[in-house]
């Protein structure tokens, strides 16, 4: 794994990275396809070489999403000897999907997450919870990863990564450590789960009253998990249940959510090097392969 940026003291900045699988024969590959997921907070790409996940990259989208789509793609291709034109089909997804100039088709992140989760965990997955940078969605899928029911909230920051970034910043805790830090012995009362802005004021009040940081961050993780729980209730949780998106890496939210649901989320399969933020890009890549095969059969 290669760290792309040196760690600056900006607590909400999670580490960007890219990954290349060993032993991939890029130059003799028959079909290389890619999926690119341009979210409002992070951009991800997954490249499949002859049906194997060969490389991926995760970076911050920043203020220019077309630029970040090019950047994340070039990180994923770096050192492979393969150029963008060598890819047979590219599907874009995510908030910025219509702004990816080199994608052949845009597909919604809901469909891509369903398919991606099905690939990562297999056909037993029935419920996918994706907690993204600026949205939160619950998806029911069938054994092929096709959507049966979904609900999304992208209007309100409560229950999203941005909400967590606000708290990381407030408490000066690097965002990737928030989960561990929140696992306190005495579970505090949750802060208001309905608005990040008001939750932040509450948190400031708690800090002034002398509550330790760990307790405040636990209160917020608790609030966020409850918020997400009510979203899931609308769609219904059927096992197997999995969590994708950045917050899947936050044990503080995940453990509390599992407790409230009474259901444990499947852990990431150990054999493959997956990142839960990749489900969208992986799903998009699989759609790319299908669409390429369909187009080729007709020509």
């Amino acid at each position: 794994m290669k760290k792309l940026e040196s760690e600056k003291k900006e607590y909400w900045k999670w580490p960007e990275y890219s990954f290349k699988a060993e032993g991939v024969d890029w130059n003799n590959a028959k079909i290389i396809v890619a999926g690119i997921d341009v979210g409002s907070v992070s951009s991800k790409t997954a490249i499949f070489v002859d049906d194997e996940l060969a490389s991926f990259s995760i970076i911050r989208t920043g203020s220019n999403s077309p630029e970040s789509s090019q950047k994340v793609m070039s990180h994923a291709l770096e050192g492979t000897g393969v150029k963008l034109n060598d890819l047979k089909y590219i599907v874009s997804t995510g908030y910025g999907r219509v702004n990816v100039p080199f994608a052949q088709r845009a597909i919604t992140e809901i469909a891509c997450h369903g398919r991606g989760a099905n690939y990562i965990w297999g056909p037993t997955v029935k419920t996918v919870l994706d907690m993204g940078g600026q949205d939160c969605k619950a998806i029911s899928i069938d054994e092929k990863g096709k959507i049966v029911n979904f609900i999304m909230n992208d209007k309100c920051a409560a229950g999203t990564g941005r909400g967590m970034e606000v708290f990381a910043d407030l408490l000066s805790i690097p965002i990737e450590n928030i989960g561990e830090t929140s696992l306190v012995k005495d579970e505090p009362k949750p802060v208001s789960s309905t608005c990040v802005v008001f939750a932040k004021s509450e948190a400031l009040g708690l800090l002034r009253q002398g509550s330790p940081k760990e307790s405040v961050v636990a209160a917020y993780c608790s609030a966020m998990s409850h918020r997400v729980f009510t979203l899931l209730e609308r769609v219904g949780v059927k096992t197997e249940f999995v969590i994708t998106g950045g917050i899947a890496k936050n044990i503080g939210v995940v453990s509390r959510l599992e407790k409230e649901l009474g259901v444990k989320a499947l852990p990431l399969p150990k054999e493959q090097k997956f990142d839960p933020q990749l489900a969208g890009a992986i799903g998009a890549s699989l759609f790319a392969k299908t669409l390429f095969m369909k187009a080729n059969k007709q020509s």
Binding site: S40, S63, N64, Q134, K155, C156, A157, R162, G163, V166, V196, V197
Partner: peptide
Amino acid sequence: SQCTVFAESEVISLLHS
């Protein structure tokens, strides 16, 4: 954006544009 937190990011984006 219909949310204060998201609107802040949107405003910064607009400034950058």
